[in-house]
């Protein structure tokens, strides 16, 4: 069984935010109004942000300053705190290690958003909107699993949504392999953020395959997880700067 994993090399990441917008375009996350955005309601499943996150007084003084930037998709934790608190199993880990969200079942209690130590789960505060002609570019794909909505199709108001490692692309790639009558290979699918990464800082693949890039990189001395102490056993790996 494949165990999908993403590796982000922070030294190659140039904080361009291409991943944020690639994700938006692939997964139909809406643009919110400026007022909403100021109120922290922007929905970008993959966000780029400066570190330290909280402007601390001990950040350093000119010229002894070093700002760091990080980018944050869902960590697809092995021991996902969000999954454990969902009362209706609207979020779950699939057999390939992807933490997914069932938009048709979510009751909008926002326990998962509160429980996630990474803040990578997003809530639809308002009906997502694309003004006038902007709606034209939405990704027409719709993934449904067991009859309930999961894919990039627009989520209704009041449900939680999150990074899915672009699972609809996986389904598509598998389908393509099937149509072409061959075995599906793990390198046939990458999420949109990996594909677009300007610095080639993102890698994606099967962590259980010892020959895959991600599993090679996971052995790097620089390999680290975000908030390792959270106990969530995050899977998305970072390669530290330096």
């Amino acid at each position: 069984m494949t165990n999908w994993c993403m590796v982000i090399d922070l030294e190659k990441c140039v904080a361009c935010q291409g991943c944020s917008i690639a994700c938006r375009m692939e997964n139909n996350t809406p643009v919110v109004s400026p007022e909403e955005a100021k109120n922290g309601r922007a929905i970008r499943w993959n966000d780029v942000f400066p570190l330290p996150v909280h402007i601390a007084p001990d950040q350093g003084e000119y010229p002894n300053v070093k700002t760091h930037y990080s980018t944050r998709p869902c960590m697809h934790c092995k021991n996902a705190p969000c999954v454990k608190v969902c009362p209706v199993q609207a979020t779950f880990i699939d057999e390939e290690g992807i933490v997914r969200q069932n938009y048709d079942r979510c009751i909008g209690c926002r326990f998962c958003t509160v429980a996630c130590p990474y803040g990578v789960r997003y809530f639809n505060w308002s009906e997502p909107q694309w003004e006038e002609t902007l709606a034209e570019y939405r990704n027409p794909d719709q993934l449904s699993v067991n009859g309930s909505l999961e894919g990039p199709a627009v989520r209704p108001v009041g449900v939680v949504e999150k990074c899915t490692y672009c699972v609809h692309r996986l389904v598509k790639a598998r389908e393509l392999a099937k149509v072409e009558g061959r075995e599906f290979r793990a390198d046939e699918y990458v999420p949109a953020c990996v594909q677009t990464c300007t610095g080639k800082a993102r890698f994606f693949g099967d962590l259980d395959d010892p020959d895959s890039t991600v599993s090679q990189l996971s052995k790097s001395l620089r390999a680290t997880h975000l908030l390792e102490d959270s106990g969530a056993h995050p899977k998305t790996l970072y390669l530290a700067e330096g």
Binding site: G40, R41, G108, G119, Y122, F123, W125, E127, V157
Partner: peptide, 11 residues
């Protein structure tokens, strides 16, 4: 309108 009418936000 959804919970947007509250001041709730992320986080």
């Amino acid at each position: 309108l959804g919970l947007g009418v509250t001041d709730l936000n992320r986080p």
